[in-house]
């Protein structure tokens, strides 16, 4: 019994280490995007927690807040997919074009958020 738990613990540790090493191999700009995604998700979680405490009275504000965070996360992930050099499907896509699409989409998202917020 102890051996299997030890092996699972070893496995878990090995897993984390390999994940860590694989992740640190990613280029810097992708890491920036990942940081951005983490920030957005974190903000969303804070808002959900706040809603659980206070109640959902201005529901449209809650929705717009949460969805703006989720939206930015999703769009950043899309950007990451398109910019990632290991992605063979997007080999021919210039990163400037990807970033321009990303900016456009974010503009639309924030416009809608501002409209829905109040």
């Amino acid at each position: 019994m102890g051996k299997s738990t030890a092996t699972t613990k070893d496995d878990a540790q090995a897993l984390f280490r390999s994940l860590h090493s694989a992740y640190s191999a990613t280029p810097t700009n992708l890491k920036i995007i990942d940081l951005y995604v983490v920030f957005a998700v974190f903000t969303a979680l804070i808002q959900v927690g706040y809603m659980a405490i206070v109640g959902s009275f201005p529901f449209n504000s809650f929705l717009s807040g949460v969805l703006s965070c989720v939206g930015t996360a999703v769009l950043a992930v899309c950007l990451r997919i398109q910019v990632n050099k290991e992605n063979k499907e997007f080999k021919d896509l210039p990163p400037e074009r990807a970033f321009a699409d990303f900016v456009l989409c974010n503009l639309v998202l924030h416009l809608v958020i501002m409209n829905f917020l109040g």
Partner: peptide, 13 residues
């Protein structure tokens, strides 16, 4: 009560 949401939206922007 919605100020946190306003804040979150502006912070994402």
């Amino acid at each position: 009560t919605a100020f946190p949401y306003y804040g979150a939206s502006f912070s994402t922007m």
